[in-house]
Design a protein around this nucleic acid. Structure first.
Length: 859
RNA sequence: GCCGGAGUGGCGGAACUGGCAGACGCGCCGCACUCAAAAUGCGGUGACCGCAAGGUCGUGUGGGUUCGAUCCCCUCCUCCGGCACCA
């Protein structure tokens, strides 16, 4: 007896275990199977020529192949993949490509450090990253892949460079670079410390002028300020606007005064936004690099001036530009003549005046400019007020007066005295213009784009230098100029290409005399400035882009990526689009119609994830433990996508449990859980019909909200809504409401809504459910996104919170279609409201938000 | 210094257009199931007072507007991002 009973128990337990094991959600076995099936069936290969459906070009910033995918890549890419799937379910022909930003410094550094070939290092990393990217279950169209270090890609960088050159959009000019006497040119990050030492040999680094290549970004300055037609986040637009930095003012011509060492009469042009303050100019400042400095310097001042110029060359950018630093400068022993009153003012050079902005020279008006004020104070120069609000004319100045008071007037300004400042400014500019001594002018902070890099691992600039013919473009038929495979990149800091004789020596295409190749390579930002166009025809041999496809498929409908690229990459991409338009390759003005900047995942320590800090989270181990769907959902659930934040795996178990519950309600509607005292019973006051109505209502309300959340990139609340719906299903599981039509519809909607975010489990459950129903269409990801049934969403009754003097006192349940007047009566009859009113009559009754809340005001 | 963004329970976060602060999840507490544990399920969980009913306080700080403010305005503080003498 005892024995039998024991055996019976054991059999029962085994049966249960057997059953749970078979039914268990096992992500690790499901996921690779579906990934293989999707790849085989070509589900995500986009037919770019299909015109039967509207196009949708979804672009995620392509990764740098650093070697390993980390959780940050998942964070940026899996929600974008969810969007791709979501759009497909809406009937769009979605193009969602991926590639690799494969040129750049890390490969070169790895080469030097580990004695590996940069190409081999990069290609191996790419291979590894492809494998890891596939584990995301993302719907990348791998057929469109672009790898920028492939000659098939970078030859078009070269071609575009030559076209830009032809169109006057590229040019060659001198520019200062960081120069080490031992190691040659250095990248900015190779200059260390405030005293500017070479990272390798420790020698003092200086600026040296080298001939370098530029793109004329300034030509598009005004057009780049125009954001009409693109839907970009306000902060990014502000950042770009500030970066371009348009300012309006005037250019005023001073002349040099004659002196005992100098005949005078040279023009000195200054740019100012405040021509109204011209009478307050008490000295002039030139940038140390200003071309006239040498000619104007008095013999007795030469030594001091030369020393100052030399010092300015070594100063770090930061040091030089720091606002806190005390002003420095020296007088050059010459004077300038103010065109408006003939006054002679001394000329200084000072490094607070920048050679690259405006004309590299300023008229200094210490009374009305902070920097000039600081300089004048330091060197004991006169400060003359020329703008004043009434009553402040004679007041001593302790700081520059900049603010614009409405009633301020010009003072000490000759014939202009008494005019409002802005009017006076216009009058002064006009008078000077008449005499040819000034004009209205606009300057920009943005500079042309310096594209030369003294680096190996990049696109060779297709130029040949000939002593007779100068800089000669490489003929089209000789493109690409291939990057030599094996060079000696282990040597000193100079560009290895410059030491490669085989690469260097070449005959001039023009005169066939001996010549040498350009050894600089292109800035890698060029690679990323047009790569999305190339995705459309990665194999195309006759040109960089297929114009017809570009016209049909761009601008990119949605671009997602980090805000750290707010200025550089996104501005260069806009420049390229306009430049490519102007040389006839395409017809759009903007590259990306809509932009979303997701946040960044930091290490658990709150710092940027990096191998050197040892705070990198490897997604592989999470995927092996929980499955890709769980990791995807967890990253989406963490918080708003644009926020990012420190990585913490805390809570991933909650997502895992959620997917298990989804599995359970989909697979086993009639099962019951031990431990629930009410298991199998409908909630009190609900019959089966009411329960089914509640199920439908919950499903359709979830659908309404989840749809809005996908549209708004609110993945965290999207997941939360799905959890709520799942919780409702769990509540009804095992009751008489389970397994019916309403139940099935709710499960179906849950799976469809979850499919973009968790593609594997939903595909598995979808196929099992349909197989059980005798059908097996593939796949859930080609299903149409469901429509909300508005009738399912309306509710019969509504709970209205009641406040007395703004404090919550009661809630009343009223019919959904109650009138304001009836609502007021019902509210006044509520017992707690009566108590709170303590016998008084309300002075005001406010029914707010269409009956959403009632507030009673009583004194 | 200037320009952006953000500060909400023990934690991640939610709150539509000015209308119930804390959805959803984590953690924690209690219970059920179990010989036991794990897993799972059920219930609770902002703070303070109270046996309870209930009350008071509460969205970085201080003020303002409003019947009503996490939300709008002003002051200040902290953190993050960008720019950094741009005349």
């Amino acid at each position: 007896m005892t024995q039998t009973s024991q055996t019976g128990d054991e059999t029962g337990r085994e049966e249960r275990n057997e059953r749970t094991r078979i039914e268990r959600y096992d992500a690790v076995s499901i996921e690779p199977r579906w990934q293989a099936r999707w790849a085989e069936s070509g589900l995500y290969r986009t037919d770019l020529h299909d015109t039967t459906r509207p196009r949708y070009y979804l672009l995620t910033m392509y990764p740098y192949p650093s070697g390993d995918i980390h959780i940050g890549h998942w964070y940026t890419k899996t929600p974008t993949d969810a969007l791709a799937r979501y759009r497909r379910m809406h009937g769009y022909n979605v193009f969602f490509p991926i590639g690799f930003d494969a040129f750049g410094l890390p490969a070169e550094n790895a080469a030097i450090k580990n004695k590996v070939n940069p190409r081999a290092w990069t290609l191996q990393n790419i291979e590894n990253m492809r494998r890891q990217l596939r584990t995301m279950g993302a719907t990348f169209d791998w057929d469109a892949e672009v790898v920028t270090c492939d000659p098939a890609y970078y030859r078009w960088n070269q071609w575009l460079f030559l076209q830009f050159l032809k169109a006057g959009l590229a040019y060659r000019a001198k520019a200062p670079v960081d120069w080490c006497p031992n190691d040659g040119t250095l990248a900015r990050e190779q200059v260390e410390g405030t005293d500017r030492r070479c990272w390798r040999c420790g020698a003092q680094v200086e600026k040296r002028d080298l001939e370098q290549w530029w793109f004329r970004t300034t030509r598009y300055a005004d057009e780049l300020l125009d954001f009409t037609g693109i839907d970009w986040p306000e902060p990014i637009r502000i950042m770009q606007t500030n970066w371009i930095g348009r300012s309006e003012g005037g250019e005023i011509v001073f002349t040099t005064a004659p002196s005992d060492h100098h005949a005078g009469g040279e023009e000195l042009r200054v740019f100012t936004t405040r021509p109204d303050t011209l009478f307050g100019a008490t000295f002039m400042v030139l940038a140390p690099e200003h071309p006239l400095v040498e000619a104007l310097t008095a013999p007795g001042r030469r030594a001091e001036v030369a020393a100052y110029v030399a010092r300015a060359r070594i100063a770090t950018e930061i040091e030089r530009l720091s606002t806190d630093r005390e002003k420095s400068g020296v007088a050059i022993g010459a004077e300038a003549v103010n065109p408006v009153n003939g006054e002679r003012i001394p000329i200084f050079i000072a490094d607070y005046v920048l050679a690259g902005y405006g004309t590299g020279a300023i008229m200094a008006v210490p009374a009305h400019d902070e920097r000039d004020f600081a300089f004048a104070t330091r060197f004991g120069l006169p400060i003359r007020r020329v703008v004043a609000a009434p009553g402040t004319e004679g007041a001593p100045m302790t700081e520059a007066y900049i603010a614009h008071a409405a009633d301020e007037r010009l003072v000490n300004s000759g014939p202009y005295t008494g005019m409002p400042a802005d009017e006076g400014g216009r009058a002064i500019t006009a008078a000077l213009a008449e005499r040819g001594l000034g004009k209205a002018a606009i300057t920009y902070r943005i500079r042309d784009w310096l594209i030369s890099r003294q680096r190996y691992w990049g696109t060779p600039i297709p130029i040949i230098h000939c002593d007779r013919c100068g800089a000669v473009p490489v003929p089209d038929e000789d493109l690409p100029v291939l990057l030599p495979e094996t060079v000696d990149y282990h040597g000193s800091g100079d560009n290895p290409l410059a030491r490669d004789e085989a690469f260097l020596r070449v005959t001039c295409p023009s005169c066939e005399g001996p010549a040498r190749r350009e050894t600089d390579t292109l800035d890698t930002f060029i690679d990323s400035s047009w790569y999305w166009f190339r995705y459309l025809s990665p194999e195309k041999a006759g040109g960089p882009v297929d114009t017809a496809l570009v016209d049909r498929w761009t601008p990119v409908d949605q671009y997602t990526g980090g805000a750290e690229h707010a200025v550089m990459h996104l501005l260069y991409s806009r420049f390229f689009t306009k430049a490519m338009r102007d040389i006839g390759l395409l017809h759009e003005n903007e590259p990306f119609r809509r932009l979303f900047n997701q946040g960044q995942i930091l290490g658990a320590d709150g710092e940027r994830m990096s191998k050197s800090r040892g705070n990198v989270q490897d997604p592989d181990e999470l995927v092996q433990r929980y499955g890709a769907d769980t990791v995807r959902l967890f990253l989406m659930f963490m918080g708003p996508w644009d926020q990012g934040g420190p990585w913490s795996p805390t809570g991933i178990g909650g997502i895992s449990r959620f997917l298990n519950r989804v599995w359970t309600v989909a697979m086993d509607p009639h099962g019951r859980d031990a431990g629930d005292p009410e298991a199998g019973q409908l909630p009190a006051e609900q019959d089966r019909a009411a329960a089914e109505a509640a199920l439908r209502s919950a499903a359709h309300r979830a659908l309404r909200d989840v749809t809005a959340d996908y549209e708004g990139f609110r993945f965290n609340t999207m997941v939360a809504r799905l959890m709520e719906l799942c919780n409702v299903l769990v509540r009804y599981r095992g009751t008489e409401a389970a397994g019916g039509e309403a139940w099935d519809e709710a499960v179906r909607l849950l799976l469809l809504m979850l499919a973009p975010a968790a593609p594997h489990i939903t595909e598995e459950l979808w196929s099992r459910r349909l197989a059980a129903a005798g059908r097996a269409p593939f796949s859930i990801h080609t299903e149409r996104w469901p429509d909300v049934d508005p009738t399912a969403v309306v509710e019969e009754t509504r709970e209205v919170p009641v406040q007395v003097n703004g404090k919550l006192r009661d809630k009343v349940v009223v019919p959904a279609d109650v009138t304001d007047a009836d609502l007021e009566l019902m509210v006044l009859a509520a017992p707690k409201v009566i108590a709170a009113l303590a016998g008084k009559t309300p002075d005001r009754v406010i029914v707010a938000g269409g009956g959403r809340l009632v507030n009673l005001v009583v004194h």
